[in-house]
Simulated assay, not measured.
Amino acid sequence: MSIDEIRESSPDFMTDDQMREFLTEEGVGVLGLLDEGVPYLVPMSFGFDGDSTLYFVFLLFGTESRKETLSDRAGQARFLVYDAESANEWRSLSLTGPLREIEDDEWTDLRDAMENAWHPDVFSAADPMRGIEGYRLEIDEWTGIQHGS
Protein backbone atom coordinates (compact mmCIF):
# COMPACT_ATOMS: atom_id res chain seq x y z
CA MET A 1 0.00 0.00 0.00
CA SER A 2 1.39 3.39 -0.96
CA ILE A 3 1.54 6.45 1.34
CA ASP A 4 -1.20 8.09 -0.74
CA GLU A 5 -3.46 5.04 -0.32
CA ILE A 6 -2.82 5.06 3.43
CA ARG A 7 -3.67 8.76 3.63
CA GLU A 8 -6.86 8.24 1.63
CA SER A 9 -7.96 5.37 3.88
CA SER A 10 -7.21 7.18 7.16
CA PRO A 11 -9.99 8.93 9.06
CA ASP A 12 -9.98 12.70 9.48
CA PHE A 13 -10.69 14.62 12.65
CA MET A 14 -13.89 16.65 12.50
CA THR A 15 -13.79 20.41 13.05
CA ASP A 16 -15.92 22.05 15.75
CA ASP A 17 -18.36 23.23 13.07
CA GLN A 18 -18.60 19.71 11.60
CA MET A 19 -19.27 18.27 15.06
CA ARG A 20 -22.00 20.84 15.74
CA GLU A 21 -23.59 20.09 12.37
CA PHE A 22 -23.43 16.34 13.04
CA LEU A 23 -25.14 16.74 16.43
CA THR A 24 -27.84 18.88 14.82
CA GLU A 25 -28.46 16.25 12.10
CA GLU A 26 -28.55 13.23 14.40
CA GLY A 27 -31.03 12.63 17.18
CA VAL A 28 -29.95 9.36 18.80
CA GLY A 29 -26.78 8.06 20.41
CA VAL A 30 -25.49 5.94 23.28
CA LEU A 31 -25.19 7.25 26.84
CA GLY A 32 -22.45 5.68 28.97
CA LEU A 33 -22.68 5.78 32.76
CA LEU A 34 -20.41 4.08 35.28
CA ASP A 35 -22.02 1.21 37.23
CA GLU A 36 -19.68 -0.40 39.77
CA GLY A 37 -16.69 0.00 37.47
CA VAL A 38 -18.50 -1.27 34.36
CA PRO A 39 -20.04 0.99 31.70
CA TYR A 40 -23.83 0.97 31.59
CA LEU A 41 -24.74 1.80 27.99
CA VAL A 42 -28.20 2.88 26.91
CA PRO A 43 -29.45 4.19 23.55
CA MET A 44 -30.91 7.67 24.00
CA SER A 45 -32.69 10.28 21.94
CA PHE A 46 -31.08 13.66 22.42
CA GLY A 47 -31.46 17.29 21.56
CA PHE A 48 -28.59 19.68 20.90
CA ASP A 49 -28.72 23.41 21.64
CA GLY A 50 -26.37 24.20 18.72
CA ASP A 51 -23.56 25.22 21.04
CA SER A 52 -22.40 23.13 24.00
CA THR A 53 -25.28 21.24 25.62
CA LEU A 54 -27.10 17.97 24.95
CA TYR A 55 -30.56 17.39 26.43
CA PHE A 56 -32.26 14.10 27.26
CA VAL A 57 -35.76 13.14 28.36
CA PHE A 58 -35.97 10.03 30.53
CA LEU A 59 -39.32 8.24 30.41
CA LEU A 60 -39.64 6.53 33.78
CA PHE A 61 -41.48 3.22 34.14
CA GLY A 62 -41.88 1.07 37.24
CA THR A 63 -40.81 1.98 40.73
CA GLU A 64 -37.15 2.57 39.95
CA SER A 65 -34.92 3.22 36.97
CA ARG A 66 -31.30 2.14 36.74
CA LYS A 67 -30.69 4.89 34.17
CA GLU A 68 -32.14 7.51 36.53
CA THR A 69 -30.20 6.21 39.57
CA LEU A 70 -26.87 6.09 37.72
CA SER A 71 -27.47 9.51 36.11
CA ASP A 72 -28.25 11.10 39.47
CA ARG A 73 -24.99 9.88 40.99
CA ALA A 74 -22.80 10.34 37.92
CA GLY A 75 -20.44 13.26 38.01
CA GLN A 76 -19.42 12.74 34.39
CA ALA A 77 -20.97 10.87 31.49
CA ARG A 78 -19.87 9.90 28.01
CA PHE A 79 -22.11 10.07 24.96
CA LEU A 80 -21.44 8.52 21.55
CA VAL A 81 -23.12 9.55 18.30
CA TYR A 82 -22.27 7.74 15.10
CA ASP A 83 -23.47 7.25 11.56
CA ALA A 84 -22.16 4.44 9.35
CA GLU A 85 -23.32 4.71 5.76
CA SER A 86 -20.78 2.10 4.60
CA ALA A 87 -17.34 0.74 5.45
CA ASN A 88 -15.88 3.73 3.61
CA GLU A 89 -18.25 6.45 4.78
CA TRP A 90 -18.85 6.98 8.48
CA ARG A 91 -18.72 9.54 11.29
CA SER A 92 -18.25 9.10 15.01
CA LEU A 93 -18.38 11.68 17.79
CA SER A 94 -17.56 11.03 21.46
CA LEU A 95 -18.47 13.62 24.09
CA THR A 96 -17.86 13.87 27.82
CA GLY A 97 -19.15 16.23 30.45
CA PRO A 98 -21.16 16.58 33.62
CA LEU A 99 -24.67 15.14 33.52
CA ARG A 100 -27.32 16.68 35.74
CA GLU A 101 -31.07 16.85 36.09
CA ILE A 102 -32.50 20.05 34.67
CA GLU A 103 -34.22 22.64 36.80
CA ASP A 104 -37.86 23.66 36.33
CA ASP A 105 -36.86 26.84 34.48
CA GLU A 106 -34.81 24.87 31.89
CA TRP A 107 -37.70 22.90 30.32
CA THR A 108 -38.13 25.48 27.55
CA ASP A 109 -34.46 25.05 26.59
CA LEU A 110 -34.92 21.27 26.61
CA ARG A 111 -38.06 21.41 24.43
CA ASP A 112 -36.36 23.70 21.91
CA ALA A 113 -33.27 21.49 21.69
CA MET A 114 -35.27 18.23 21.38
CA GLU A 115 -36.69 19.18 17.97
CA ASN A 116 -34.07 17.06 16.22
CA ALA A 117 -34.38 14.08 18.61
CA TRP A 118 -35.40 10.67 17.32
CA HIS A 119 -38.38 9.25 19.22
CA PRO A 120 -39.26 5.55 19.01
CA ASP A 121 -42.91 4.50 18.95
CA VAL A 122 -42.39 1.62 21.38
CA PHE A 123 -43.17 3.72 24.45
CA SER A 124 -46.75 4.52 23.43
CA ALA A 125 -47.75 0.92 24.20
CA ALA A 126 -45.56 0.49 27.31
CA ASP A 127 -46.74 0.22 30.89
CA PRO A 128 -47.98 3.43 32.49
CA MET A 129 -45.19 5.87 33.09
CA ARG A 130 -44.15 7.02 36.52
CA GLY A 131 -43.06 10.33 35.05
CA ILE A 132 -40.43 12.08 32.99
CA GLU A 133 -37.15 13.73 33.94
CA GLY A 134 -35.01 16.04 31.89
CA TYR A 135 -31.21 15.90 31.95
CA ARG A 136 -28.47 17.94 30.35
CA LEU A 137 -24.89 17.12 29.48
CA GLU A 138 -22.60 20.14 29.27
CA ILE A 139 -19.94 19.26 26.71
CA ASP A 140 -16.49 19.58 28.28
CA GLU A 141 -14.66 17.58 25.66
CA TRP A 142 -15.51 16.20 22.25
CA THR A 143 -13.67 14.29 19.57
CA GLY A 144 -15.10 13.54 16.16
CA ILE A 145 -13.60 11.44 13.40
CA GLN A 146 -14.93 10.71 9.96
CA HIS A 147 -14.07 8.89 6.80
CA GLY A 148 -15.42 9.60 3.37
CA SER A 149 -17.86 12.26 4.61
Score class of each variant (00 low, 15 high):
Ser45Thr: 04
Glu115Tyr: 08
Asp4Ser: 04
Glu25Asp: 05
Met19Gly: 05
Asp72Leu: 14
Thr96Met: 08
Glu141Pro: 09
Arg73Ala: 06
Glu21Gln: 13
Pro120Thr: 08
Leu93His: 07
Ser94Phe: 14
Phe22Lys: 02
Ala113Tyr: 00
Thr69Gln: 08
Glu101Gly: 01
Asp109Glu: 12
Ser94Asn: 11
Met19Ala: 12
Asp83Tyr: 12
Arg66Glu: 15
Gln146Thr: 12
Leu31Lys: 01
Asp49Val: 02
Ile139Pro: 04
Gly148His: 06
Ser71Thr: 07
Met114Gly: 15
Asp121Pro: 04
Asp12Ala: 09
Gly131Asn: 11
Trp107Thr: 10
Asp12Pro: 00
Leu60Gln: 06
Glu103Met: 08
Phe46Ala: 06
Leu80Ala: 08
Gln18Val: 08
Arg20Ile: 05
Ala84Phe: 14
Arg136Phe: 02
Glu26Leu: 09
Glu68His: 03
Phe13Glu: 15
Ser10Val: 09
Arg73Trp: 03
Glu64Leu: 01
Leu41Cys: 10
Ile139Glu: 06
Trp142Asp: 03
Gly29Gln: 06
Glu115Leu: 13
Leu33Thr: 01
Met129Arg: 11
Phe48Gln: 02
Leu34Val: 14
Ser65Cys: 07
Val57Tyr: 02
Glu133Pro: 00
Ala84Asn: 11
Ser149Ala: 11
Thr143Asn: 10
Trp107Tyr: 09
Met114Ile: 07
Glu5Ala: 14
Glu85Val: 11
Asp105Met: 09
Met44Lys: 03
Arg130Trp: 05
Gly29Ile: 03
Gly134His: 02
His147Leu: 12
Arg136Pro: 01
Gly134Trp: 02
Gly62Leu: 11
Gln146Leu: 09
Asp17His: 12
Ala74Thr: 02
Gly37Cys: 13
Phe48Asp: 01
Tyr82His: 13
Ser149Arg: 12
Ala87Asp: 07
Gln76Met: 13
Asn116Asp: 08
Asp17Ala: 11
Asp17Thr: 08
Gly62Thr: 07
Gln18Lys: 10
Arg91Glu: 10
Leu33Cys: 02
Ala126Arg: 13
Asp12Trp: 01
Gly29His: 03
Val57Asn: 08
Ala117Gln: 05
Arg7Thr: 10
Thr53His: 07
Ala87Phe: 06
Ala113Lys: 02
Arg91Leu: 15
Leu99Ala: 00
Gly134Pro: 02
Val42His: 03
Ile3Pro: 00
Val28Thr: 09
Pro11Arg: 04
Arg130Cys: 04
Met19Gln: 13
Thr108Ala: 13
Asp17Leu: 14
Trp118Met: 13
Tyr135Gln: 01
Asp16Glu: 15
Arg136Gln: 11
Arg136Val: 00
Leu70His: 06
Pro43Val: 07
Ser86Phe: 05
Phe61Arg: 10
